[in-house]
Design a protein around this nucleic acid. Structure first.
Lengths: 150, 150
DNA sequence: TATTGTTATACTCTATAACTATA
DNA sequence: TATAGTTATAGAGTATAACAATA
């Protein structure tokens, strides 16, 4: 990435500063890059982190339920959960009542990894949110939840 | 995508509703999908639309300046501008003072395309922003601009 | 027939690094 | 040496559609 990319320039941004889509793209891209740098040692992507959090909070959740919770298609989740399982962070258990389904749980390793990972993510979030004061930050979270129907 | 993906479920989202990164990903993904559907007939992606807007607002801008304005790497922009040029929407002119650089301008076709495209994008933005009232929507834009340093 | 999860395939967005031509 | 732009390559994130196994 070029050094000065996020600096202000005497360039007319036209309608872009009024477009939610553009502002979300910019913010999301920056977060993704910073997340990757911040958590490189863990070797887990931002998307995988969200899945680990959901499995932690809902032990025994199935892949389909996870898809709903994460707002992702099952075909997106399936390979992701496979990676996490191969990595030994998640376990897939049989569901007696439905042999098609699989109940997902964190492994001991997954449970041990999550707390330090969350701390790192917290630092990353704080860094990105730095331009906002506490009230603005909370207001932004609140508005984004509402936008997302959460 | 599964039908009920954005419905509320009795599933614990854990720390995710408090994470800017997660909320931005969800919102951005939805916008991207809706943008693509809304503007399918134009055959132009969301990223390309932003570039067209910037070239329109800054005729003669160079690729490097465009990279700064759009917060993208030049290696991301170069192929994108090539597509837009091949499509006949953007023209690349020589810069007498620097033969390495290229001055970008909308073609007549590009200028004709942008107004109806913008109208369509406006509808798309309104649809996504529907959960928010006017004040909330403006507040969200404002906070996102601040977060992005704009 | 309908659903759970997998797989094959494809598309968007983005970056790093090496390169060419020019400054 | 440094900069403008190109290209090769890679990786994250996502979806649709067709499929096998099970309900």
């Amino acid at each position: 990435m070029d050094a000065e990319r996020f600096r202000q320039e005497p360039i007319d941004l036209g309608p872009l500063p009024g477009l939610l889509g553009h502002l979300l793209r910019r913010a999301h891209t920056r977060m993704l890059l910073d997340f990757t740098e911040s958590t490189a040692e863990f070797g887990i992507t931002s998307g995988e982190f969200a899945l680990l959090c959901l499995v932690e909070a809902n032990p025994g959740i199935t892949l389909g339920q996870l898809a709903t919770a994460a707002a992702l298609d099952k075909s997106t989740l399936s390979p992701a959960m496979q990676r996490l399982t191969e990595r030994g962070l998640v376990e897939r258990h049989a569901v007696p009542s439905d042999r098609r389904a699989q109940a997902l749980r964190l492994s001991a390793e997954g449970m041990a990894l999550l707390p330090p990972f969350k701390a790192r993510v917290g630092e990353h979030e704080d860094r990105i949110a730095q331009p906002l004061d506490a009230a603005e930050r909370e207001a932004l979270l609140c508005l984004l939840r509402k936008l997302n129907g959460l």
